[in-house]
Write a protein that binds this DNA or RNA. Structure first.
Length: 613
DNA sequence: AATGTGGTTGATGCT
DNA sequence: TAGCATCAACCACAT
């Protein structure tokens, strides 16, 4: 038997089925094999992981650990509470490791982290094996086949993907796993820097997850929410590969549903059950392989003989997976710059309120944007933002969605459209970055690439540009749910209000409100309007805000700046917006856009010089 | 190079 | 009830 001593490092792939990296690790026929997870202070303190997503992660880890033990009673998922960058060099020596194997991760922080770990492995003489299995196609390969440009449209993905080759077929789960070696830890432990802690506000008690490297009982156990100082989760959705595979099977065993799925025709108001598959959190944690999903759907399609025509990308289920690859491809190319407007060459500059504060340097940030700060440049906008976040806008459709999000960690994609449009270009004119942070904290399926990409889409700063298509906080929900069952479910204080007023309670006559036992009053600010039987006034006249936002968007598009423009970074963009809108300037704007298009990444300087002549 | 067409998911009012 | 034009007018992509 080969004397290989292997660490398999689980990260974005909490599964045994269809894992190219795990297969590569097991093919080493190790004499000792440790399946491990490293607790990462970056994840624990520097990203917004809400209680519900923590619960989901813990579910995934427990399920995976059980599955490993089923393959080998001596093994399980070994959780190590130290940063991988400092842990691995010590672990390599202590356990005489010969191989480290993991799935490639193209998130900007992950790339930097893995580079450090791979360097340490090189120094320790440990061979590193990396395999890709997180998207349909390796995101870096996808970018290459897209002319070394970020994938910014679904057409580009449809063209570039097949150039790489067909989506790899699923790999069966292993049916055995070698014993782990010794698990003694005879080395000094490095306690991570715990401040600042982005999740401090969520904790009821002090975080104790890093007190001992192998957990409180020294058995490498999966942590509990209590250890992290969190209160119990509120989400009804549970994680784990077992559940993920059951859910996938449930979806694909309904051939008609699977083959004719059209995303825009699924109701965002359906809640019991939901109208979509709810497989996104499983894709996020890698408890479901996206390629397994892809091929299971393809199998259904190839044998489908139903009356209704099968759907095709982009609206079909396969189309949804292509969008995911598109966002991963954009992020793989742009790195940290993808996550904010500033420094982002593909993100249109709009002078939103509550935007990320500019970084002092002119180079793209090396730190994740999630540690960004913003200035309250408008108390009004900040108040609207807070009311939006906590579901107290006075628009029941918006509030129901935001409350469902906070409580359950998941809302339908079209619901995300409705609240995102409302916060940004179709109501509050608040930066998409603020909304993205709330989603980061509250979504159990939060995937940085997809979240950032979708917020840019909805705010019409990248991927999508039809800013005049604005969702109404009244009409859109009503179109899907005439009777307001969804609103009643999540905004119970309006539970018995007649359907005539359920989307616009401020218009209801006094006697209707009295009969329904609700008063419409207060400004929805924190600490007010939370009295039982009270629902806030709408925070603004939507029609009025709609018009204002449209004008502002039109202006910003005419000016035509992007996040990497020096005038955006040095603040001189203000002059371009101060000037009153006139014919000449509109022409300049169009010219800007045309020039930019013709010159690719060129700045607008050339045009301005030309314009002066 | 100018022009036309289409773009996963708008709202409204008309036929 | 589904399909269409209108609203105002964006970008990407193909020709």
């Amino acid at each position: 038997m080969a004397k290989t001593r292997v660490i398999y490092w689980f990260r974005t792939d909490l599964r045994l089925h269809d894992s190219p990296a795990l297969r590569a690790a097991l093919d080493l026929n190790a004499e000792a094999f440790w399946p491990i997870w490293t607790w990462d202070p970056h994840y624990v303190y520097k990203t917004r992981v809400g209680v519900n997503r923590w619960q989901f992660l813990i579910d995934c880890q427990n399920d995976l650990s059980k599955s490993i033990t089923r393959l080998n009673p001596n093994s399980k998922l070994f959780l190590m509470r130290e940063a991988p960058q400092t842990l691995f060099p010590k672990l390599f020596r202590a356990w005489k490791i010969t191989h480290l194997v993991f799935e490639k991760d193209t998130d900007p922080y992950a790339r930097a982290r893995d580079a450090v770990v791979m360097e340490a492995a090189k120094e320790a003489g440990v061979e590193v094996i990396v395999r890709y299995g997180r998207t349909l196609w390796d995101s870096d390969e996808l970018v290459k086949k897209n002319g070394n440009k970020p994938t910014m449209s679904i057409k580009q993905v449809e063209a570039a993907g097949p150039k790489i080759g067909p989506v790899p077929k699923p790999i069966p789960a292993p049916n055995s796993m070698p014993d782990p070696g010794e698990t003694t830890l005879n080395f000094e432990r490095e306690v991570p820097e715990q401040h600042p802690d982005l999740n401090e506000g969520c904790r009821e008690k002090k975080d104790k997850s890093y007190e001992k490297i192998a957990g409180p009982n020294g058995d490498f156990a999966v942590p509990t929410l209590a250890e992290l100082g969190f209160p119990p989760a509120t989400t009804p959705h549970r994680g784990g590969e077992s559940i993920a595979l059951c859910s996938l099977h449930k979806t694909t065993s309904n051939a008609t549903y699977t083959a004719t799925f059209q995303k825009p025709k699924t109701a965002p108001t359906a809640f019991s059950p939901q109208s979509t598959t709810l497989l996104s959190p499983h894709l996020h944690f890698g408890t479901l392989s996206v390629r397994q999903f892809y091929w299971d759907v393809q199998d259904v399609l190839s044998s489908y003989k139903g009356k209704e025509k099968a759907s095709t990308p982009p609206t079909s289920l396969i189309g949804q997976l292509l969008f995911r690859d598109m966002y991963f491809g954009a992020q793989a190319h742009l790195g940290h710059a993808f996550s904010s407007t500033l420094h982002n060459p593909k993100c249109r500059f709009i002078p939103w309120q509550l935007s990320n504060a500019p970084t002092p340097t002119t180079t793209p940030p090396s730190n994740p944007a999630s540690t960004s700060t913003y200035t309250i440049d408008s108390p009004q906008a900040e108040a609207w933002f807070q009311r939006w976040k906590y579901g107290r806008t006075g628009f029941p459709w918006i509030d129901a969605l935001m409350r469902q999000l906070r409580q359950e960690g998941w809302i339908h994609h079209l619901g995300r459209h409705a609240v995102a449009c409302f916060l940004t270009r179709g109501g509050c004119y608040v930066s998409w970055e603020r909304g993205a942070e709330v989603f980061e904290e509250w979504l159990i399926d939060h995937e940085e690439a997809c979240n950032i990409g979708n917020w840019q889409w909805l705010s019409c700063t990248a991927f999508f540009a039809q800013y005049y298509r604005i969702y109404s906080p009244v009409a859109f929900g009503k179109g899907w749910d005439q009777h307001g069952a969804f609103v009643r479910r999540y905004v119970p204080e309006l539970g018995t209000l007649d359907e005539k007023w359920i989307y616009e309670p401020w218009k209801a006559p006094e006697e209707e409100l009295r009969r329904a036992g609700v008063r419409i009053e207060g400004d929805g600010a924190s600490g007010s309007g939370e009295e039982e039987g009270v629902y806030p006034q709408p925070m603004f006249d939507f029609a009025e805000r709609r018009t204002i936002c449209l004008e502002k968007m039109k202006k910003a598009y005419a000016v035509g700046l992007y996040g990497d423009d020096h005038r955006v970074l040095d603040g001189s963009w203000k002059h371009l917006f101060d000037e009153p809108s006139n014919e000449h300037e509109e022409e300049q704007g169009s010219e800007n856009n045309r020039k930019r298009k013709a010159k690719g990444q060129a700045t607008l300087d050339g045009h301005f010089k030309k314009a002066k002549i």
